[in-house]
Simulated assay, not measured.
Amino acid sequence: MNELNHDLGIIALESCATLGNAIDKYIQEQRNTTESFLIPLDEIRFANGEGKVKISETVRGRDIYILCDVGNYSCTYTMFGFEHHKGPDEHFQDIKRTVAAIRGKAARITVIMPLLYESRQHRRKGRESLDCALALQELERLGVDEIITFDVHDPNIQNAIPLLSFENIYPTYDIVKALVCNEKSLELDKEKLLVISPDTGAMDRAIYYSSALGVDVGLFYKRRDHSTIVNGKNPIVQHEYMGRDVEGKDVLIVDDMIASGESVLDIAKELKNRNARNVYVAATFTFFTEGLDKFNKFYEDGIISRIYSTNLTYISQELNDAKWFEAVDMSEFSARIINRLNHGKSIAKYLDATRIIHTLLNK
């Protein structure tokens, strides 16, 4: 047996149970077996809020993949009689507890965090913490062999762990496939469609989408009030646009995440004021931290047509039921990656989706 081809074990933490079950089913299909690869795990909380994890099955000599969604705010526990929702810090602590419970008995440990922990705090401005780098280094010290994430806010964060395998995967193909299959009126023509970057930081992503789709790209940049801080950031004064005229065109805004959605809604309004036909949004992660009411209103008013996002982080039932929202299932794609890595095969072809996007569009 190839030394890289160890028995597969998947530990799906509570936050990633649904995705983990779907991945397990796909791997069973790929391997033509009914045997589950999921390893049972108990995430235990004491009444004072302390926690531990307990693995009830052997992991010795196995190739272990730990799945955790640090953005899943639906996970709760009881502390001193009060119900608490788990935040990213508590989810990350459960990853560390899981690695500690394995106690070096596994042949290899891979942590799959689709939403990278603290990825928004990826660089230091002034006297402040650099949380994402610290977290990655902590996982390295604990003995994790590889970290897999999706569409990280700033890929340069991997420089914090230069000797650790770090794979940043983009869901571009699956999002593009969902878009072109669902939007029948969408025309992939330079005169009919334009890709929009909502800020300078997302420009590389927008250029990739535009290149894959064969259309042009436009840019909004944010003028901020740097004399004021609101909710930890400088408020946006105005969105300025650079690019081709959008009148009569469909536009696709692409970004890595939607938090409150304020920027996306402002840009969508600006685009409709410039007589854009349909405004679509593609984001890897969607949080909607301030609720869905504004988005419902913008959809009803015809300002946004559809938002596409992956199921790599928690999607509430309310969001899933929204007419303007389309969830892009990433479980089969994730299963293929785990399956190939477990067999010691390269995943290079999954890191650049340009070829398969072109094949899809040519059909």
Rank of each mutant, 00 (worst) to 15 (best):
S346A: 09
A212K: 08
L136I: 06
T228A: 12
I303A: 11
R274Q: 07
Q30K: 14
V152G: 03
K233N: 13
K233E: 14
R120C: 12
G214L: 02
I102S: 02
H343A: 08
D199A: 05
G20L: 12
L142K: 03
L186M: 06
E167T: 12
K105D: 00
D245R: 14
L186C: 06
A107E: 08
A322Y: 03
E140C: 03
E240M: 15
P155V: 05
D189W: 04
I157Q: 10
L351C: 04
V279K: 07
N182V: 07
Y350W: 12
I253H: 01
R123S: 11
Y73F: 15
N278G: 06
I356E: 09
A107Q: 10
T354Q: 06
Q137I: 04
L360K: 01
A133G: 13
A106K: 10
L13Q: 10
Q317N: 13
L361I: 13
S197T: 06
F325T: 01
T354W: 00
L38S: 12
V70L: 10
I157E: 08
L13K: 10
D42M: 11
E290H: 14
S305L: 04
V176G: 04
Y26G: 04
S56F: 13
K177D: 13
A100Q: 11
I315G: 07
P114Y: 07
L115E: 09
E138D: 12
V70Q: 07
S165Q: 11
V328G: 02
K363P: 00
T172A: 08
Y209C: 02
I64D: 02
G243D: 03
L163T: 14
A268Y: 03
L341I: 05
N296G: 02
K323C: 00
F220K: 09
Q317H: 13
H122Q: 11
S260F: 00
R224I: 00
T172C: 04
S74D: 13
F288Y: 09
F37P: 04
A133H: 05
H226D: 09
V279E: 03
T33I: 07
D255R: 00
F285Q: 01
N5Y: 03
L139R: 06
F46C: 01
G104I: 05
S227H: 12
Y65N: 02
V53I: 12
T76H: 07
L134C: 09
V111E: 06
L360A: 01
G81S: 05
S346P: 10
I112R: 05
Y26F: 15
S263M: 01
Y77H: 15
N182H: 12
R62H: 12
N311I: 09
P40K: 07
